[in-house]
Each structure stands twice: as structure tokens, then as C-alpha cells.
Nucleic acid binder design. Structure first.
Lengths: 208, 208
DNA sequence: TAAATATCGATAAATTAATATTCATAATTG
DNA sequence: CAATTATGAATATTAATTTATCGATATTTA
């Protein structure tokens, strides 16, 4: 049915729609959104129709209605509690990442094995990794950001999954496979940078 | 010719091949790599053949040869200097990211407008943003990680591009479009997390 | 040395994703 | 109120990506 790309675009549509709303727009056309995302209007309409987002001929889509329905689709009707496992550089940065606030995502706690990183009094507490299991069960955590070193990423993912986590955003430097009972989304900064450098150098050689 | 996915997989192949080499393996089969990446052996062979990476029937591919040729393709024959623009949480974390070291990527400097973040004596200096232009020209910088707030991301990207940067890894919370003379790769943590949560909740509803 | 087997390489098929086209219709205009 | 126009919705087409198939051939083994 709907692929990863579609959902990713849904997030982008939503972001732009919120901007439009703030600017006072009440209606929007597929053509406008297509321009903003650098895709074809047809794809916008197809994406929308896949999720039952309908508009009106001649007068386009209603901004409010789109945002509301997208919020439902993207599960933004309630706040999703998310934990961060591994509070080194990247983990810490994501714990304090501003862009999550007000977007239905709340980082509720961090976990790390290093005692010097523990902090039970901060706005977002950092617990010892030993408290992970109890916390997940107690707070019914379903989503985690995994930012541990390569050596422990696999084991930690297995542990999270065994304790009921169903979605992992993995920013550890090793890609992990998803399972039947858990979605894993990998972000590998090294690979992304390599990719960027590769295509940049292709540009160079083309233009010469 | 070769799409983004192929290059991304090339990075993954390479990562695994380096592991195999460290373990003493000298040869590898498409089937093994396919298992590691959770794709079909046919795709591995196709990816390889796209880049002229050949093996031998019955005895597979030579690990060393693959790594060497992939290093060429991914421009790892020399160290690529990369700057970080915006040294807040994410920017700082990526400046100090260990996984780049020894992988042909060196973060050479950071830039930020906030004086309190300046640090000219650290291992990786953080300069005022005003020094960006001179630095890029002086060090012939082609690649940048963009980690500034949403409000300045677009302008800053334009500036980088106008000064000769041809590849940008954009982790600012707003996707940017690429141009003819610069590749932009967007990583949006909010969108990634939304995507993860969406597919996780789909899993849930399927299993019930 | 001949037969068996595992694996690559190339091609074809299937799947997935994106775009183009066509049609119906609501709004606008004269 | 009829004609025009802009737009969504549905469908068809194209493109892209991935997987499956099959022949050729090194390697192994008897």
C-alpha cells in the first residue's frame, strides 16, 4: 500500500501545511505542495488519495482538514513518549533536540551505562542502563532512539525489542535489521556523508 | 546509472568487507553479503557489476580487491576535509563523532555565530561564522555538514554553495533542495521518528 | 580426467514508485 | 445561465528498482 517514501512525504507535507496555516492560508493546491517538495502534483494527489485525504475541484484542499487528518495518520493525536538509549554526543544532542517539542514527540528519559552521565534531576533524567527494563514496562514505552556504540547496538536493540519496544530509530554506526515485531530505521552518518561526497564528486566531473 | 540506494549499499558492503578482512577472510560470496544487508544475492552482483567489480565463478569475490575498488569509488583514496556549520547540540556531536575517523573523512573546523561556542584551541577549532568564507577558499572545502536552526538553513546553504561547496549533509530541521552545482542530502530527525512511529503502529495493528 | 556442484554474469520478469493523461466538476466570468 | 477554466480523482503509462532465472564456467571430488 503506502511506502516509506509516502509517509516521509506526509511529514513534509504536514510541515509545510503548518507553515501555510500560520501565514493565514486556508486552502492549498496540489501544485503548490508539489513545488515545495520538488515532486509532481500528481504524486501529491496520489499520496493524499492513498490516505483518503480529499479536496475539491477548483478550490483545492482545506489546510486545516489536511493537518488534522495527517495528525491522525502520523499518530499526533497524543504525545508519544520516547527514550534515548546511549547518551553520548549524538544521544545527548537528540535528547535536547528542540524540533521534537510541540510535535507530539516527547523525550522522557535517557539511559547510559556510564555513571558520570547519570542525572536524575535534569529536565530529562538520565538513568543507569540497569533501570531500562523497569522503565519501559512502567511507562509503556514503545519507541526508542538508539545511540550506543557499535559494539553494543545489536544486543541493546534485541533487549529493547524483547521488552516491548516496537519502533527504533537507530543512529548507532551500524545498521540493524528490522523484525516482525519491531521497525528499525537506520541513520548512518558515515554512509550519508560518503553518499554526499560521492554525488558531489560526480557533479564536479560532469561539469568539467 | 547508479542510484542513491546503490551508493548507500556500497558503503554498507564496504563496512562489512572491512569486518571480514579483519577476521581473516580473503574471499566472499554474493550470497553472504546479501544476507548481511537483507537483500537478494542478485542485487549484490548487479551493484558490483554496475561498478565493474568482478568476481570468479565458484570462488566468489576477493575481499581486498572489493575494498580497494570501493575505496576508489567512494573517494577514500584521500582524506576529505569537512566543516560543520552550526555547533549546537547536533553539530557539536557530529564534530566529535568517532566513526568518521579512519574512514577518510576529517572534520577540520566548526563555525557558529555564538561567541560562547568559539574555541580556537581545541582539537577541532570553532570559528566565528564570519570566517567561513575565507576558510572555505583557503582550505578548498567542498563538503559541509549543516546543523543550523531552521531560520538560517536556507540562507546558509546558499552561502556555502556560492562559495564553492558542492556537497551538503543537511541535518537542520528543514529539508533543502539540491542544485545543479551542489548535492544536498537531508536528514530530518523529526520526520524519521514520525516514520518510525507510524510503521511501528502499523505493526501493532496488524498483529492484533 | 570426467562428473558434479557452486557461483558469477547477464538477461528477463516482477515489483514498486512516480509521472502523464483523461475526465468530471466546482467555481468564475461574461 | 452558458461558457470557460482550473483543479481533483481515477486511470494508464513510464521509469526505477529489485528479484528470479538460466547458461557458462571455475573448482572440487571421485
Amino acid at each position: 500500500m503506502s511506502c516509506k517514501n509516502t509517509i516521509m512525504r506526509l511529514s513534509e507535507y504536514r510541515r509545510i501545511l503548518c507553515k501555510l496555516k500560520a501565514l493565514g492560508f486556508t486552502r492549498v493546491f496540489s501544485d503548490h505542495l508539489a513545488g515545495a517538495l520538488d515532486i509532481s502534483p500528481a504524486l501529491v494527489r496520489k499520496d493524499f488519495s492513498d490516505f483518503g485525504l480529499t479536496g475539491n475541484r477548483k478550490s483545492g484542499y482545506t489546510v486545516d482538514e489536511l493537518i488534522e487528518k495527517m495528525n491522525m495518520i502520523l499518530r499526533k493525536d497524543k504525545v508519544e513518549p520516547v527514550i534515548v538509549v546511549g547518551c553520548g554526543g549524538i544521544g545527548r544532542a537528540l535528547m535536547e533536540y528542540n524540533a521534537f517539542a510541540g510535535e507530539g514527540i516527547r523525550i522522557v528519559a535517557g539511559f547510559d551505562s556510564r555513571p558520570e552521565l547519570h542525572d536524575l534531576k535534569g529536565t530529562i533524567p538520565v538513568h543507569d542502563i540497569s533501570r531500562l527494563e523497569v522503565y519501559i514496562k512502567g511507562h509503556n514505552i514503545k519507541t526508542a532512539i538508539l545511540a550506543v556504540p557499535e559494539s553494543s547496538a545489536g544486543d541493546m536493540a534485541d533487549f529493547l525489542i524483547s521488552r516491548g519496544v516496537t519502533g527504533i530509530l537507530n543512529v548507532a554506526p551500524i545498521p540493524l535489521k528490522g523484525y516482525d515485531n519491531c521497525v528499525i530505521r537506520n541513520i548512518n552518518f558515515l554512509h550519508e556523508l560518503e553518499n554526499t561526497i560521492y554525488f558531489a564528486s560526480m557533479l564536479d566531473s560532469k561539469q568539467k
